[in-house]
Design a protein around this nucleic acid. Structure first.
Lengths: 156, 156
DNA sequence: CAAGATTGACGTTTCAATCTTC
DNA sequence: GAAGATTGAAACGTCAATCTTG
Protein backbone atom coordinates (compact mmCIF):
# COMPACT_ATOMS: atom_id res chain seq x y z
CA UNK A 1 0.00 0.00 0.00
CA UNK A 2 1.56 3.30 -1.02
CA UNK A 3 0.74 6.87 -1.92
CA UNK A 4 1.36 8.43 -5.28
CA UNK A 5 3.82 11.07 -4.12
CA UNK A 6 7.28 10.31 -2.85
CA UNK A 7 6.80 11.65 0.70
CA UNK A 8 3.82 9.46 1.44
CA UNK A 9 1.52 12.44 1.91
CA UNK A 10 -0.13 12.45 -1.47
CA UNK A 11 -3.43 10.89 -2.36
CA UNK A 12 -4.53 8.07 -0.07
CA UNK A 13 -5.04 4.66 -1.64
CA UNK A 14 -8.45 3.06 -1.77
CA UNK A 15 -7.46 0.71 1.06
CA UNK A 16 -6.37 3.64 3.22
CA UNK A 17 -9.61 5.47 2.52
CA UNK A 18 -11.46 2.35 3.56
CA UNK A 19 -9.67 2.32 6.90
CA UNK A 20 -10.62 5.96 7.35
CA UNK A 21 -14.26 5.30 6.48
CA UNK A 22 -14.41 2.38 8.91
CA UNK A 23 -12.94 4.59 11.59
CA UNK A 24 -15.62 7.26 11.11
CA UNK A 25 -18.43 4.76 10.85
CA UNK A 26 -17.42 2.80 13.89
CA UNK A 27 -17.00 5.95 15.96
CA UNK A 28 -20.46 7.22 15.10
CA UNK A 29 -22.13 3.93 15.87
CA UNK A 30 -20.38 3.09 19.10
CA UNK A 31 -20.80 6.56 20.60
CA UNK A 32 -24.49 6.47 19.70
CA UNK A 33 -24.84 3.08 21.31
CA UNK A 34 -23.06 4.06 24.52
CA UNK A 35 -25.11 7.25 24.68
CA UNK A 36 -28.34 5.30 24.35
CA UNK A 37 -27.36 2.73 26.97
CA UNK A 38 -26.36 5.38 29.48
CA UNK A 39 -29.56 7.36 28.98
CA UNK A 40 -31.65 4.22 29.17
CA UNK A 41 -30.07 2.71 32.26
CA UNK A 42 -29.19 5.75 34.37
CA UNK A 43 -30.81 8.68 32.53
CA UNK A 44 -27.57 10.55 31.98
CA UNK A 45 -26.22 12.10 28.75
CA UNK A 46 -22.71 10.99 27.94
CA UNK A 47 -21.50 14.60 27.98
CA UNK A 48 -22.54 14.85 31.63
CA UNK A 49 -20.73 11.65 32.45
CA UNK A 50 -17.62 13.04 30.81
CA UNK A 51 -17.69 16.23 32.88
CA UNK A 52 -18.43 14.43 36.15
CA UNK A 53 -15.69 11.86 35.55
CA UNK A 54 -13.10 14.56 34.86
CA UNK A 55 -14.07 16.48 37.99
CA UNK A 56 -14.14 13.38 40.19
CA UNK A 57 -10.62 12.48 39.07
CA UNK A 58 -9.26 15.96 39.83
CA UNK A 59 -7.85 17.00 43.24
CA UNK A 60 -10.70 18.10 45.55
CA UNK A 61 -13.16 17.26 42.78
CA UNK A 62 -12.78 20.57 41.04
CA UNK A 63 -11.25 22.15 37.93
CA UNK A 64 -11.11 25.57 36.36
CA UNK A 65 -13.55 25.96 33.50
CA UNK A 66 -10.61 26.32 31.14
CA UNK A 67 -8.99 23.08 32.27
CA UNK A 68 -12.29 21.26 32.13
CA UNK A 69 -12.94 22.51 28.61
CA UNK A 70 -9.59 21.12 27.48
CA UNK A 71 -10.22 17.81 29.22
CA UNK A 72 -13.56 17.20 27.56
CA UNK A 73 -12.59 18.71 24.17
CA UNK A 74 -15.29 21.37 24.03
CA UNK A 75 -15.36 25.10 23.33
CA UNK A 76 -15.30 27.42 26.34
CA UNK A 77 -18.77 28.76 25.73
CA UNK A 78 -20.04 25.28 24.99
CA UNK A 79 -18.79 24.17 28.37
CA UNK A 80 -20.39 27.17 30.08
CA UNK A 81 -23.82 26.06 28.86
CA UNK A 82 -23.17 22.43 29.65
CA UNK A 83 -22.10 23.19 33.21
CA UNK A 84 -25.17 25.43 33.52
CA UNK A 85 -27.40 22.45 32.86
CA UNK A 86 -25.48 20.08 35.13
CA UNK A 87 -25.49 22.71 37.86
CA UNK A 88 -29.27 23.08 37.56
CA UNK A 89 -29.50 19.36 38.22
CA UNK A 90 -27.39 19.83 41.37
CA UNK A 91 -24.49 17.64 40.24
CA UNK A 92 -21.86 20.39 40.17
CA UNK A 93 -21.38 23.79 41.80
CA UNK A 94 -19.48 26.86 40.72
CA UNK A 95 -17.16 28.81 43.00
CA UNK A 96 -14.85 31.68 42.11
CA UNK A 97 -11.14 31.09 42.50
CA UNK A 98 -9.79 33.01 45.55
CA UNK A 99 -6.29 33.57 44.15
CA UNK A 100 -7.43 34.76 40.71
CA UNK A 101 -10.95 36.06 40.72
CA UNK A 102 -11.21 35.87 36.95
CA UNK A 103 -11.24 32.12 37.27
CA UNK A 104 -14.15 29.87 38.18
CA UNK A 105 -14.01 26.43 39.67
CA UNK A 106 -16.53 23.79 38.77
CA UNK A 107 -16.84 21.36 41.68
CA UNK A 108 -18.61 18.04 41.71
CA UNK A 109 -21.23 17.75 44.47
CA UNK A 110 -21.93 14.74 46.66
CA UNK A 111 -24.97 14.02 44.56
CA UNK A 112 -22.82 14.35 41.46
CA UNK A 113 -20.41 11.74 42.82
CA UNK A 114 -23.30 9.46 43.70
CA UNK A 115 -24.80 9.70 40.23
CA UNK A 116 -21.38 9.18 38.67
CA UNK A 117 -20.73 6.03 40.68
CA UNK A 118 -24.08 4.79 39.52
CA UNK A 119 -23.28 5.53 35.89
CA UNK A 120 -19.66 4.42 35.82
CA UNK A 121 -20.13 0.64 35.81
CA UNK A 122 -22.80 0.93 33.13
CA UNK A 123 -20.60 3.03 30.89
CA UNK A 124 -17.49 0.93 31.44
CA UNK A 125 -19.42 -2.25 30.78
CA UNK A 126 -20.51 -0.67 27.50
CA UNK A 127 -16.90 0.10 26.57
CA UNK A 128 -15.95 -3.46 27.46
CA UNK A 129 -18.76 -4.92 25.39
CA UNK A 130 -18.65 -2.69 22.32
CA UNK A 131 -14.95 -1.84 22.14
CA UNK A 132 -12.61 -4.03 24.13
CA UNK A 133 -14.36 -7.35 23.54
CA UNK A 134 -14.19 -7.12 19.76
CA UNK A 135 -10.55 -6.23 19.81
CA UNK A 136 -9.38 -9.37 21.46
CA UNK A 137 -8.71 -11.11 18.21
CA UNK A 138 -7.24 -7.92 16.80
CA UNK A 139 -4.24 -6.37 18.44
CA UNK A 140 -5.27 -3.87 21.06
CA UNK A 141 -1.69 -2.88 21.67
CA UNK A 142 -1.29 -1.95 18.01
CA UNK A 143 -4.45 0.13 18.18
CA UNK A 144 -3.19 1.90 21.26
CA UNK A 145 0.15 2.64 19.63
CA UNK A 146 -1.69 3.75 16.51
CA UNK A 147 -3.81 6.31 18.33
CA UNK A 148 -0.94 7.59 20.33
CA UNK A 149 1.00 8.08 17.09
CA UNK A 150 -2.01 9.80 15.56
CA UNK A 151 -2.43 12.12 18.54
CA UNK A 152 1.24 13.01 18.48
CA UNK A 153 0.99 13.69 14.77
CA UNK A 154 -1.96 16.00 15.07
CA UNK A 155 -0.12 18.42 17.26
CA UNK A 156 1.92 19.26 14.13
CA UNK B 1 -3.82 -6.97 29.88
CA UNK B 2 -7.00 -8.68 31.04
CA UNK B 3 -10.46 -8.03 32.35
CA UNK B 4 -11.66 -9.02 35.77
CA UNK B 5 -14.35 -11.42 34.59
CA UNK B 6 -13.68 -14.69 32.86
CA UNK B 7 -15.44 -13.85 29.58
CA UNK B 8 -13.42 -10.71 28.93
CA UNK B 9 -16.50 -8.51 29.06
CA UNK B 10 -16.17 -7.25 32.60
CA UNK B 11 -14.53 -4.04 33.68
CA UNK B 12 -11.95 -2.65 31.25
CA UNK B 13 -8.41 -2.30 32.52
CA UNK B 14 -6.77 1.10 32.86
CA UNK B 15 -4.75 0.43 29.71
CA UNK B 16 -7.88 -0.45 27.75
CA UNK B 17 -9.62 2.70 28.99
CA UNK B 18 -6.61 4.68 27.85
CA UNK B 19 -6.90 3.27 24.34
CA UNK B 20 -10.57 4.22 24.37
CA UNK B 21 -9.81 7.75 25.55
CA UNK B 22 -7.15 8.18 22.86
CA UNK B 23 -9.63 6.98 20.28
CA UNK B 24 -12.22 9.58 21.32
CA UNK B 25 -9.70 12.36 21.63
CA UNK B 26 -8.07 11.69 18.29
CA UNK B 27 -11.42 11.49 16.53
CA UNK B 28 -12.56 14.84 17.91
CA UNK B 29 -9.36 16.59 16.95
CA UNK B 30 -8.87 15.16 13.47
CA UNK B 31 -12.48 15.75 12.41
CA UNK B 32 -12.24 19.31 13.68
CA UNK B 33 -9.05 19.83 11.73
CA UNK B 34 -10.40 18.38 8.49
CA UNK B 35 -13.57 20.45 8.88
CA UNK B 36 -11.54 23.63 9.30
CA UNK B 37 -9.33 22.89 6.31
CA UNK B 38 -12.25 22.12 4.03
CA UNK B 39 -14.11 25.26 5.05
CA UNK B 40 -11.00 27.36 4.70
CA UNK B 41 -9.89 26.07 1.31
CA UNK B 42 -13.16 25.39 -0.49
CA UNK B 43 -15.83 26.85 1.80
CA UNK B 44 -17.66 23.57 2.29
CA UNK B 45 -18.81 21.94 5.54
CA UNK B 46 -17.64 18.37 5.91
CA UNK B 47 -21.25 17.18 6.21
CA UNK B 48 -21.95 18.54 2.72
CA UNK B 49 -18.89 16.79 1.37
CA UNK B 50 -20.11 13.57 2.91
CA UNK B 51 -23.53 13.82 1.27
CA UNK B 52 -22.15 14.80 -2.12
CA UNK B 53 -19.57 12.03 -2.09
CA UNK B 54 -22.18 9.39 -1.26
CA UNK B 55 -24.48 10.60 -4.03
CA UNK B 56 -21.70 10.85 -6.59
CA UNK B 57 -20.69 7.27 -5.88
CA UNK B 58 -24.25 5.97 -6.28
CA UNK B 59 -25.76 4.83 -9.62
CA UNK B 60 -27.12 7.85 -11.51
CA UNK B 61 -25.90 10.08 -8.72
CA UNK B 62 -28.95 9.56 -6.58
CA UNK B 63 -30.13 7.80 -3.42
CA UNK B 64 -33.33 7.55 -1.41
CA UNK B 65 -33.30 9.77 1.66
CA UNK B 66 -33.37 6.66 3.82
CA UNK B 67 -30.35 5.11 2.11
CA UNK B 68 -28.49 8.37 2.25
CA UNK B 69 -29.22 8.73 5.96
CA UNK B 70 -27.74 5.29 6.59
CA UNK B 71 -24.70 6.02 4.44
CA UNK B 72 -23.80 9.21 6.26
CA UNK B 73 -24.87 7.94 9.71
CA UNK B 74 -27.37 10.70 10.50
CA UNK B 75 -30.94 10.84 11.76
CA UNK B 76 -33.70 10.98 9.11
CA UNK B 77 -34.92 14.39 10.19
CA UNK B 78 -31.36 15.64 10.48
CA UNK B 79 -30.76 14.61 6.90
CA UNK B 80 -33.93 16.33 5.74
CA UNK B 81 -32.66 19.68 7.01
CA UNK B 82 -29.16 19.07 5.73
CA UNK B 83 -30.39 18.26 2.24
CA UNK B 84 -32.62 21.36 2.44
CA UNK B 85 -29.54 23.52 2.83
CA UNK B 86 -27.52 21.78 0.17
CA UNK B 87 -30.49 22.00 -2.19
CA UNK B 88 -30.78 25.74 -1.55
CA UNK B 89 -27.18 26.02 -2.68
CA UNK B 90 -28.06 24.17 -5.89
CA UNK B 91 -25.78 21.19 -5.28
CA UNK B 92 -28.53 18.57 -5.04
CA UNK B 93 -32.11 18.21 -6.23
CA UNK B 94 -35.05 16.24 -4.90
CA UNK B 95 -37.34 14.11 -7.04
CA UNK B 96 -40.09 11.77 -5.94
CA UNK B 97 -39.62 8.09 -6.69
CA UNK B 98 -41.92 6.98 -9.53
CA UNK B 99 -42.35 3.39 -8.34
CA UNK B 100 -43.02 4.27 -4.69
CA UNK B 101 -44.28 7.77 -4.24
CA UNK B 102 -43.58 7.76 -0.52
CA UNK B 103 -39.90 7.79 -1.33
CA UNK B 104 -37.77 10.77 -2.35
CA UNK B 105 -34.56 10.71 -4.33
CA UNK B 106 -31.79 13.14 -3.62
CA UNK B 107 -29.76 13.66 -6.80
CA UNK B 108 -26.43 15.42 -7.12
CA UNK B 109 -26.47 18.25 -9.69
CA UNK B 110 -23.74 19.12 -12.18
CA UNK B 111 -22.73 22.00 -9.98
CA UNK B 112 -22.69 19.61 -7.04
CA UNK B 113 -20.31 17.33 -8.90
CA UNK B 114 -18.12 20.27 -9.83
CA UNK B 115 -17.90 21.48 -6.24
CA UNK B 116 -17.23 17.95 -5.04
CA UNK B 117 -14.36 17.50 -7.48
CA UNK B 118 -12.94 20.75 -6.21
CA UNK B 119 -13.22 19.65 -2.59
CA UNK B 120 -12.13 16.04 -2.98
CA UNK B 121 -8.37 16.54 -3.40
CA UNK B 122 -8.32 18.95 -0.47
CA UNK B 123 -10.15 16.55 1.80
CA UNK B 124 -8.14 13.53 0.73
CA UNK B 125 -4.91 15.40 1.19
CA UNK B 126 -6.08 16.17 4.73
CA UNK B 127 -6.75 12.50 5.38
CA UNK B 128 -3.32 11.66 4.00
CA UNK B 129 -1.62 14.26 6.17
CA UNK B 130 -3.50 13.82 9.45
CA UNK B 131 -4.35 10.13 9.36
CA UNK B 132 -2.39 8.02 6.90
CA UNK B 133 0.97 9.72 7.29
CA UNK B 134 1.16 9.18 11.05
CA UNK B 135 0.25 5.56 10.72
CA UNK B 136 3.21 4.60 8.62
CA UNK B 137 5.28 3.64 11.61
CA UNK B 138 2.25 2.00 13.19
CA UNK B 139 0.55 -0.82 11.41
CA UNK B 140 -2.24 0.44 9.21
CA UNK B 141 -3.30 -3.07 8.33
CA UNK B 142 -3.83 -3.86 12.01
CA UNK B 143 -5.91 -0.72 12.38
CA UNK B 144 -8.00 -1.64 9.40
CA UNK B 145 -8.59 -5.14 10.71
CA UNK B 146 -9.35 -3.68 14.12
CA UNK B 147 -12.08 -1.39 12.82
CA UNK B 148 -13.59 -4.04 10.67
CA UNK B 149 -13.74 -6.30 13.70
CA UNK B 150 -15.29 -3.49 15.73
CA UNK B 151 -17.90 -2.76 13.09
CA UNK B 152 -18.80 -6.43 12.83
CA UNK B 153 -19.07 -6.58 16.60
CA UNK B 154 -21.40 -3.62 16.87
CA UNK B 155 -24.02 -5.27 14.72
CA UNK B 156 -24.53 -7.65 17.63
C1' DC C 1 -4.22 45.48 26.96
C1' DA C 2 -4.49 40.14 27.87
C1' DA C 3 -6.81 36.22 30.20
C1' DG C 4 -10.96 33.82 32.09
C1' DA C 5 -15.50 33.26 31.65
C1' DT C 6 -20.18 34.43 30.32
C1' DT C 7 -23.99 36.17 27.27
C1' DG C 8 -26.86 36.95 23.01
C1' DA C 9 -27.75 35.74 18.53
C1' DC C 10 -27.55 32.45 15.23
C1' DG C 11 -27.34 27.92 12.98
C1' DT C 12 -27.78 23.05 13.71
C1' DT C 13 -29.59 18.67 15.70
C1' DT C 14 -33.01 15.97 17.91
C1' DC C 15 -37.68 14.38 19.56
C1' DA C 16 -42.25 13.74 18.93
C1' DA C 17 -46.13 14.60 16.05
C1' DT C 18 -47.80 14.81 11.31
C1' DC C 19 -48.73 13.94 6.51
C1' DT C 20 -48.78 10.96 2.58
C1' DT C 21 -48.53 6.71 0.30
C1' DC C 22 -48.33 1.72 0.37
C1' DG D 1 -51.81 0.16 10.12
C1' DA D 2 -46.81 0.59 8.74
C1' DA D 3 -43.09 2.89 6.05
C1' DG D 4 -40.89 7.12 4.07
C1' DA D 5 -40.25 11.57 4.73
C1' DT D 6 -41.14 16.13 6.61
C1' DT D 7 -42.25 19.74 10.17
C1' DG D 8 -42.46 22.48 14.76
C1' DA D 9 -40.65 23.04 19.12
C1' DA D 10 -36.98 22.55 22.10
C1' DA D 11 -32.24 21.47 23.27
C1' DC D 12 -27.68 22.02 21.95
C1' DG D 13 -23.22 24.03 20.06
C1' DT D 14 -20.69 27.94 18.17
C1' DC D 15 -19.26 32.64 17.01
C1' DA D 16 -18.50 37.26 18.10
C1' DA D 17 -19.14 40.69 21.53
C1' DT D 18 -19.03 41.71 26.46
C1' DC D 19 -17.84 41.95 31.25
C1' DT D 20 -14.52 41.53 34.89
C1' DT D 21 -10.06 40.90 36.87
C1' DG D 22 -5.09 40.76 36.44
Amino acid sequence: MQSTSRDGVGIPTAAQLHVWASFLRYHAQVVDLLEDELREEVGMPIAWYDVLAQLAAAPEGRLRMQELADAVVLSRSGLTRLVDRIESAGLVERASCPSDRRGTFATITDEGRARLEEARPVHRAGIARHFVAHLQRADIAALGDGFDALLRGIHH
